[in-house]
Structure formats: C-alpha cells, structure tokens
C-alpha cells in the first residue's frame, strides 16, 4: 500500500464517520439550542405536555420552543381524534412519560400546580399519572 492510498483511506474513513455522526444527530432530531437550554435549566417539561420557560428566554430560544410546542399540539390533536379523547388528556399522558424519561437530574420541570422546580432525585409526577 502506497502512502498516498493510506491517506486516501484515512480520509474516506473520516468522511464516513462524519457522515454517520451527522445522520445520528438528524435522527435524534432534537434542536441543539433547546437541548442546551434544557441542560441549563431555562427550558423544561411542563405537566401540561408542553415545554415552558423556567427563566426568561432569549428571543431566538423562545421562537424555537414555540415551534416545538406548535408541533406537539398538532400531534396531540391527531391522536386525540383517533382515540376519541381530549387533547388535554393526550398531552397529560405524554407529560407522564416525558416526566419519567426526559427530565435529567439538574433540569427544570413545572409541576401540575404550576411551580417550577429542578430535578433533585426523582421527578415528582403529576397526580393523574399512573
């Protein structure tokens, strides 16, 4: 193997790896700005099934979160129609799951009573969750 072909292979491998990581990031699909705000305790899951702000957000972050919430509402509305339940019920059921899986220690979340807290130990689930 010539040094030239070795370099070529190295480049090809790097390109492949890069492509794979981009694909991964896309499949996870999460907005990196919003994810960072979650980690920073600015944005968090709410008991009503939507994202909210524990602290006043910059305008760019607000519009990103608003966009996510609009999509959530559309998804909730679809499932509610399919199952013959209310949109709030689908949203609440989703919140039950998200509270268990999507709030990491140190991240903010908003209780059923509308109070923001930071996860320290277990997340306190809303009363209607199983």
């Amino acid at each position: 193997m010539t040094p030239r072909s070795k370099i070529f292979i190295a480049f090809a491998a790097a390109a492949l790896l890069g492509g794979a990581s981009v694909a991964l990031a896309q499949s996870s699909g999460a907005d990196p700005v919003v994810e960072q705000a979650r980690a920073g305790g600015i944005v968090g899951e709410q008991a009503d099934g939507y994202l909210g702000f524990a602290k006043t957000p910059p305008a760019d972050l607000k519009s990103r979160v608003d966009a996510i919430n609009i999509k959530r509402r559309a998804i909730y509305t679809d499932l509610a129609a399919q199952r013959g339940v209310t949109v709030q019920e689908v949203a609440a059921a989703t919140a039950c799951q998200l509270f268990q899986t999507r709030v990491a220690p140190g991240e903010a979340y908003r209780s059923e009573a509308g109070i923001w807290g930071v996860r320290n130990g277990a997340v306190q689930k809303p009363s209607y969750c199983p």
Partner: peptide, 26 residues
C-alpha cells in the same frame, strides 16, 4: 383537572410512548 380522566391516561400509555419515539425532534 376535572377534564383529565386517569383511566384515559392509562389507556393512552402505549400510544404516547410510540408518539414520543416517532417524533424525536419534538
């Protein structure tokens, strides 16, 4: 939360899990 029925929440559990899985960006 009179408009949230717990039996409905329980019934929706699997649907909602699929929903979250299907929409990772949301």
């Amino acid at each position: 939360n009179v408009n949230i029925r717990q039996e409905v929440i329980i019934r929706l559990e699997k649907d909602v899990r699929d929903l979250i899985e299907k929409h990772p960006g949301v």
